[in-house]
Structure formats: structure tokens, C-alpha cells
Design a protein around this nucleic acid. Structure first.
Lengths: 224, 224
DNA sequence: ACAACTCCTCGTACAGCGTTCGACTAACTG
DNA sequence: CAGTTAGTCGAACGCTGTACGAGGAGTTGT
């Protein structure tokens, strides 16, 4: 029925078998880091683990399961802030960590269209949600704030400028320059190679936070 | 082959080649709309076009080409605003159109990790860029504003709530409810099924625009 | 008239894919 | 010692994207 790992329950486990789901996921992440999303096959992953490819199917239902698990795994790298700072600092810190983790593993961008329901993702989304509630967001503004921040960081990681080699980036810039009559504004501001994307991400995030801050109802009840 | 005129079909007209790249792309979009991203194969697409599968490779280099072309094709559905309004109205209108086009073709989300360099994408990005320049954004603020808006709309289309059937959405909500001890804040505000995502998108966009508006340098030179 | 050439189509084939199935081993349970 | 269970694996199936080379049709040159 349900097609996602997170919605199925685990097979009951015994001691510690030599090959585990954890080891598979760990090795999958390493493989993806080294060789990329398109080169991952069950056979190659099995070879790396020193087993036959069909053995993997004892621990995992499908290849998509491996990908879902690997994706959630890297979100665990995003440290959750302590939370004893202001809500803006907390959200900013979390989203920078989030983006950094994804840029460290560029293959993650290709998997973002799958439902993000793993424990690591949920823990971080929960933290963000709770932080926004603590900041005073309620109702539609809470939903809008939370989803906007998610949209923003996911989008920023997806349009990752620089995962493809510099050659490809230069070719894209060349394309713009060649059609400068059709795209004058884009051609003028060297779009891919010249800009500081880290700074742009940070700046865009402050736009978003500046825009949403006035909608936190800090005067709801008579608490501190 | 056939012995009678009536059983033979007309010779295809020569001034309009029977199979063109445009027709392939058009049919690919239709196929993706009807059957989804995972079911598209070159053989099935060819069958739909009434040709052999290898014929496609005369008009197109790889399957990825078809996908890239199909993706750019649907961005053409996003009408570019007239531009005789304020910059906020223009950007808002463009991004709503952009998102609507992607939601109309949910398979597009799975292709967003490819470089977006087609003419339709570039034309719309150019319009947005030009609009922001007209609004007075310069230097790093121009880069940040343009990329933030792109990030936001791409991210919003990617975390499309509701492309999967209601059953899966309900299962995800159930997961949250089952773990309400771990994700209290997420569980409390019914995350997937209950909210108005169109409104949330619109609201988040106003956050972003509110936040960036003060950084437009309207007082640069002494023109009108 | 015929040959040469270009544009386009397609059958065949190949290597590789995700996944299923049933046989096998090894360890634990009674 | 038999029975059960957890885990492994070789072989096979149906499908994929794509390369290759043969051939047909329309046009051009002589």
C-alpha cells in the first residue's frame, strides 16, 4: 500500500547480523559522495559491501528505500541549535546547517522530490516549527512561515551553483553572453561564475525573516 | 503490402516532416501528464508517436534531452506579465504563474535538479531580473533578490503537497500523530491535509517581498 | 536515364538495470 | 537429533537506453 520506507514498520531484529540496514545506508552515502547519483546500482553497492546484490533485498525492500534512507541520513549532519538564543538566530543557524549538509552531498538534490519523512528531517522540521511557535507565530502565519523557510532552503540547495564542474558553469555563462540581445539583464550581471552564493543565501534568508517578523503575535497572553 | 488505395494511408506530406522534435516534446509532455515520470520510456513514447523507438534518436540525442525539452516546454505556460504595473505586482504575478504551471505538471518536480537553461526559463528569469533592476536593486542585493525568489518558487513547487494521492498524505499525517511525543509541534498543526497551501505560498511571497523592498535603491540618479 | 547524395526510418542487438524465486547454509530451539 | 528461522546467493526475467548499419524516399547533378 504505502510506498515509502517511513510508513512501513521494521522487520523484527535479532542480535547484530553482519550485514545491517545501517551498514547499507552508510555505504550508500559513501558511494553517492564518491561516484554520484547516477552510478549507484544495487549490484555496485553490494560489491562494495562484499555481498551479492540480491542479499540487499533481505534488509531493504527496494532501491528507493536505500535512497530515502541515505537522504535522511545526511540531514542528520545538520546540527540542531541549542535553542537558548533568539528565534531568528536559531532558525538562521538551522537553515545554514541544512544547506551546508546538502551542498556537501550534491546528489541529495536529485532526491528531493521524494517525501521527506525520515526521523532526521522530522526532528529538524519539528525544531523549526517549535521555534516559530515560541516566537509567536500562530495559525496561517505559522504555516506560511514554516513552509516558506522550507521552500527557501530546499530551493537554494536545488539550484546549487557549482556542483557541476566549472566548465559547465562557464558554458552556461557563455550561452547567456551569446544571447545578450535576448537576455540583456541576465547577461550583464555574470550570473553563475562571479557571484557570492553563500552571501546571497544569507541575505535572502534575512529578507524572509525580516518580512515575517512583524507577524509574530508577541502580545497573545500575559506571560513573560 | 496493401492492395487497395483505401487500405493504404496517404504518404506523409513532405514539406512538414512527419516526425519533428516539436512533436516529440509535445507528446512527451502529454505522456508525462497522463502516466507520470516513471513510466516514460523511449519505446512507449515512440509507440505513441507511431514510430520505432530508435527513430527518436535522429531528432534527439538522449532521453535526457527529451526531459529537458519537456521541462522547458511547460515553463512556457507561465504568462509573462505585461510589466506596466509595479514591480511587486509583476514579480508576484510571474511567480504565481510559474508555480501554477509546475503544479499542473507534477512530474516537473523530479526534473528540477537539471540545469534550467531552456529559452522559456531564461525568458522568465530575464523578465524577473529586469523587473528587479527597474525596481532599483543593484549589486549584491540584486543577486540576492533574484536568487531568493527563484529558490522560493522552486522549493514551493518541489514540496508539492497533494500530488501523491490523499491516502499517502493521510498516512504521513498518521505517522506524525503516532509520534506526537517526538514531534509535538508538528503533530498539533495537521501538517499536510488541513492547510491552505495556496494561501501559504502567497503569504510567504509577501514576506520575501516585504523583506527585500527596503533594499531597492530608488534614489540612485536624478531620473524620473 | 542513371548515379550520387541527403534525410529519415527502423530491426536487431547489447550491456546493464531492479527485482523475484527457490535453493542453500548456519545458527538457534526443542 | 529434528525443526525452525535468519540470512545469503546464483540464476533468471522483463525491461531499459542506446549504437549500429541497412535501407527507403526525395532531390540534385550529369
Amino acid at each position: 500500500m504505502s510506498s515509502s520506507v517511513w510508513l512501513r514498520q521494521d522487520r523484527p531484529r535479532r542480535d547484530t547480523p553482519p550485514l545491517t540496514r545501517e551498514r547499507i545506508v552508510q555505504e550508500a552515502v559513501a558511494f553517492l559522495d564518491e561516484e554520484g547519483h547516477e552510478r549507484l546500482t544495487m549490484r555496485r553497492l553490494a560489491e562494495r559491501l562484499g555481498t551479492g546484490s540480491t542479499t540487499l533485498y533481505w534488509h531493504v525492500k527496494t532501491k528507493d528505500d536505500v535512497l530515502d534512507l541515505a537522504l535522511d541520513e545526511i540531514f542528520g549532519e545538520a546540527r540542531i541549535p541549542s535553542g537558548d538564543t533568539g528565534w531568528r538566530e536559531a532558525v538562521t543557524e538551522l537553515l545554514h546547517q541544512w544547506r551546508a549538509a546538502m551542498l556537501r552531498h550534491p546528489w541529495s538534490a536529485a532526491l528531493l522530490n521524494r517525501p521527506l519523512l525520515g526521523p532526521n528531517v522530522l526532528a529538524r522540521t519539528e525544531f523549526m516549527h517549535a521555534t516559530l511557535v515560541r516566537a509567536g507565530f500562530r495559525g496561517p502565519h505559522l504555516v506560511a512561515a514554516a513552509s516558506s523557510l522550507s521552500n527557501y532552503v530546499i530551493g537554494a540547495a536545488l539550484i546549487r551553483p557549482g556542483d557541476d564542474e566549472a566548465a559547465e558553469r562557464a558554458a552556461a555563462d557563455e550561452l547567456l553572453r551569446r544571447h545578450r540581445d535576448r537576455y540583456p539583464s541576465l547577461a550583464e550581471h555574470g550570473h553563475l561564475s562571479d557571484n557570492d552564493w553563500d552571501a546571497a543565501f544569507a541575505q535572502g534568508l534575512t529578507y524572509l525573516l525580516d518580512g515575517m517578523a512583524p507577524h509574530a503575535q508577541t502580545d497573545l497572553a500575559g506571560n513573560s
